[in-house]
Design a protein around this nucleic acid. Sequence first.
RNA 1: GGGCAUGUGGCGGAACUGGUAUACGCGCAGGACUCAGAAUCCUGUCCCGCAAGGGUUGAGGGUUCGAGUCCCUCCAUGCCCACCA
Length: 803
Amino acid sequence: MAKYDFKKIESKWQRQWEKDGIYEAQDSGRKKWYSLIEFPYPSGDGLHIGHIRSNTAMDIISRKRRMEGYNVLYPIGWDAFGLPTENYAIKTGISPEAATKKNTDTFRRQLKSLGFSFDWSREVNTTDPEYYKWTQWMFLKFFENGLAYKDKVAINWCPSCKIGLANEEAVGGVCDRCGGPVEKKTKEQWMIRITEYADKLLEGLNDVDYIPQAKIQQENWIGRSEGVLLKFKLSGVDGDIEAFTTRPDTLFGATYLVVAPEHPLLASDKLPIINRQEIDNYIQKAIQKTDIERTEEKKEKTGVELKGIKAINPANDEEIPIWVADYVLASYGTGAIMAVPAHDERDFEFAQKFNLPIKTVIDSGSVSGGVYIGSGKLANSGKFDGMDSEAAKKAITEFVGGKTTVKYKLRDWVFSRQRYWGEPIPLVHCEKCALDNPAGQGWVAVPEEDLPVELPKVKKYQPTDTGESPLAAIEKWVNTKCPKCGGPAKRETDTMPNWAGSSWYFLRYCDPHNKKEFASNDNLKYFMPVDWYNGGMEHTVLHLLYSRFWNRFLYDLGFVPVAEPYKKRTSHGMILAEGGVKMSKSKGNVINPDDLVKEFGADALRLYEMFMGPFEQSIAWDPRGILGTSRFLEKVWKIGTDKLDDDVDGKDLERLAHKTVKKVAEDIESMAFNTAISAMMIFINECFSREKINQKIWTRFLLVLAPFAPHIAEELWGNLGNKTSIHLEPWPKFNSELIAEEEFELLIQVNGKLRSKILVASGISQEEAERSALSEPDVKKWIGDSQIKKIIFVEDRLINFIV
RNA sequence: GGGCAUGUGGCGGAACUGGUAUACGCGCAGGACUCAGAAUCCUGUCCCGCAAGGGUUGAGGGUUCGAGUCCCUCCAUGCCCACCA
């Protein structure tokens, strides 16, 4: 018998498949299937074994679909812009292009060594000018449609590195690079009005099949809440403060107002405020705080009263004080709230600390004192006393002339990065045009025919001293002509965030070599939507939301045929290092897939990653685990080369084979790969214990093994004399009649305890079952002389005597 | 603090709509083969008990003929969000 030489077999078939192009999708024709994985960021560390888990899962699904007759699109590419590569360039001086080239080469080699059925002819790379040309083009669509605008935004700023930091680089208020403290700095940034799409993004969730957590997270992030805008007039002076509340029913209990430190009212110097200095100090301090400091201090509320002015509660015309406090967020609602300490925990805490009046206006029933945030009958509320909360919301809103409105937690998308390694924002700033048309602020789009605006070569990747991107230092690039008036102009030196390129890559896969459009209408119509998108939980909020938004925007403009890009979304668990900790270079616990492929083969590694545990759960790597699937493949090999026979009969084995086909097929659809493999192991163990196996039965098994372990299945298939690939064979059917057992073990319980079991014919009636059961000596013994009070009979399962 | 998960052998885990708890794999023990080891193969492997039998799914309670599964209370762990009025 030939040895199972996986090295030879695997590389042989990988070459053959590529040569024959059997995994390449056609642009039209049969019913299509689109499987998608999140395209990897090609880091310098090489492929992570976690990539292999999710890629194998979608590979199995894609291969099954191909066998089911679909024209399958299972593409791959690189999300290659990003910080680590840029930081590497800063440290080493090696250009990000060169590093990216090297890293993608490594990733490509590693992915190919695992035998994934990717359509490599459609490989995309977000850093390729041919690709980011269209990312820029899409940005210009946002710009033209008024969805891109500039605004002042606070960013994390490291004064010693002189660099803006992403939130994940500023964890704990400390710079990730130098360890120094991080400050807040306001900068003008490009923003995208995703908030305008809040409702559409929420509604779109009704039409898609996402795992529940993904839907919930999207909903929570958008955070829609219906409420009321209420105007509070200032006492004595002109002006008012508008507050947003979801509880207008508690308006009579509003004993003070609070505005955020950034509230515009505070900037006015026309108000007769007498403690101006104190307030300015407070605001100054509050604005300086980083988010982290604010959250750390949230237990202890702070604030200052605006002395000299008061507001009027429109419900009862009472004068109430106005405070400024940083527990009110400028960015949500109107930046001002009516405080109802009796019925809101935060207001209660604040009122207690500063001795503000607390007035109960909702009857809590039993609870007295403290905070009651529930609903109930109104009290102390004038003519509304006794009314129910829900009714009172409407009635009081009408009474004081409030306006119902909807607010979202979702904020606009900060789209600027002061970095080199990203897509240049394709705008130029022209002084002359700014004077001619002040509304446009002088920002002029680079014409479509001039795209892409390519990243110029630079010598140094460090940001400039002012925190501008390194692009700002390249005068030759920055200084350009205004496309509109031909006068001197300067290029925007901000680049786009990492999210940009990944927000539409699934569209490019449909038509990756198109030079005229980001993808042709025909191809988009044929391939979209993505039928099944699997990715990590860490991307179920932002990436999913951004790409849904991006697609929806293009859909509204008529560039994309579907409103929702992903029909189905599932999620995989992370692979952790031994002991359940994250794998990291610094801890030295990273598993290198190359070593495993070399030692055990791609098929064994694929199988183990699918077998190790439930796909959606995180799991720790067990270095010995792969031995199990490796042994399994050795057995498969032995049976497939040694034990086949045309003449041997195997009725019961045939039944087991059909059962296995059924189980594996069902388990693939529910991503229960671990139990699918366990079913295959049971089949193989049974075969292994036999002298000879009927070849027809064996073939049936090989077909279901093929998506999991494509190389060995192909080799054994070829050895049977087949000339075409097993991966293009029809997916095997199972015969349900054959699976149905003729006999089963009837469980016999007495008082709910298992006392005996007997083999009986399937579909046995209760009478017959009783008769057979009661004639069993064991059963007789347990029932004895007792009276049988009740008999429970579950068809084809059990019978239970209650005595 | 809020939301979402999860708790089953020495370990990863299985158990369909409530119906044989511990499938499958790892590990471990014993045996075979071998000069020896590796690999491989066979047998055993939840706990107590010689046995009959009894017990066991984080803890406690409930519903049910019957609960890992359903309900309530509590404990523990993980992830995400975090003053959103």
